[in-house]
């Protein structure tokens, strides 16, 4: 890719996964108990997408990364204090709900509008990244809808790896059943990639990167437009958190094979 990619990552915030998540009914529909007061993190799926975007940008000269995020801006600001130290990007913030009960259709509309409004964005170099899933409530369709609205036909979901070629084309590994990957070749941008976990570790915090990012992050938060999700008639009949079962034992010095075997047996019960 001669001039580098323009990589737009779409991602919002979710409650910190260690928190107790208890659905409640509100006049506006379902919500999580005390959600506004719980500490939040960038959605882990979107985080993978962001780290992969930054990694790709660092390898292809001239590339640039944006993070487009729809979230309550006060909470988004808190999350940025960590995320902004990880990798370099420019934030595009929209002050809106980040609830897991929002309608993916409405969210996608806002995201697509924001992507289109990014000044200087070159569609011929555009890669739209995002999470294939979400840690709050995985509708699983948001990124597809964003791609459709942007008119991007080349879409890949459950992506674990992208390998770029000198001519701008790239190879994509998408997860399929049985722990295997589907290998695709894409001739080049524009394309949309919904990321699974990728292969990169979480970058360490680097305050120098953070200070550089903050020059654009804070102004972006200050000028964030308020956006409400359009009502689409979506109605939840009931909400319940996933069932969890914890059986903890402390066992030391056990071979990995035996641990794996026991897990398989446990799952099969």
């Amino acid at each position: 890719m001669r001039n580098g990619y323009h990589i737009v990552v779409c991602g919002s915030i979710v409650p910190d996964p260690l928190q107790t998540l208890e659905p409640i009914e509100t006049p506006g529909g379902p919500a999580l108990k005390n959600e506004m007061m719980l500490p939040a993190v960038l959605d882990p799926w979107a985080s993978h997408a962001l780290y992969e975007a930054a990694n790709l940008a660092s390898k292809v000269a001239g590339s640039k990364v944006w993070l487009v995020s729809v979230a309550p801006k006060a909470k988004l600001q808190q999350v940025m204090m960590t995320v902004a130290q990880k990798v370099s990007f420019e934030l595009v913030a929209v002050d809106g709900p980040a609830s897991g009960f929002g309608d993916a259709y409405g969210v996608a509309a806002i995201l697509a509008d924001e992507v289109q409004s990014i000044a200087g964005l070159d569609r011929s170099r555009l890669l739209v990244f995002g999470g294939w899933e979400s840690a709050s409530r995985g509708a699983g369709v948001t990124m597809q809808l964003v791609g459709e609205r942007l008119g991007i036909a080349d879409q890949f979901q459950g992506v674990d790896q992208i390998t770029t070629q000198a001519d701008g084309s790239f190879e994509v590994l998408e997860r399929i059943e049985g722990g295997r990957h589907q290998v695709s070749m894409c001739s080049g941008p524009p394309a949309l990639l919904g990321w699974a976990t990728g292969n990169l570790p979480e970058p360490r915090n680097n305050p120098q990167v953070g200070m550089a990012n903050m020059r654009t992050v804070m102004p972006a938060l200050q000028r964030a437009k308020a956006a409400a999700l359009a009502g689409s008639g979506l109605r939840f009949l009931s909400t319940t958190p996933p069932k969890q079962q914890r059986q903890t034992r402390i066992v030391k010095n056990r071979p990995v094979e035996e641990i794996a075997q026991e897990i398989v047996e446990w799952i099969g019960k």
């Binding site: 204090m81 130290q85 915090n205 305050p207 953070g210 200070m211």
Partner: peptide, 10 residues
């Protein structure tokens, strides 16, 4: 002070 807020996270 976002410099301090980032420092804390770090």
């Amino acid at each position: 002070r976002y410099d301090l807020q980032m420092l804390i996270q770090s």
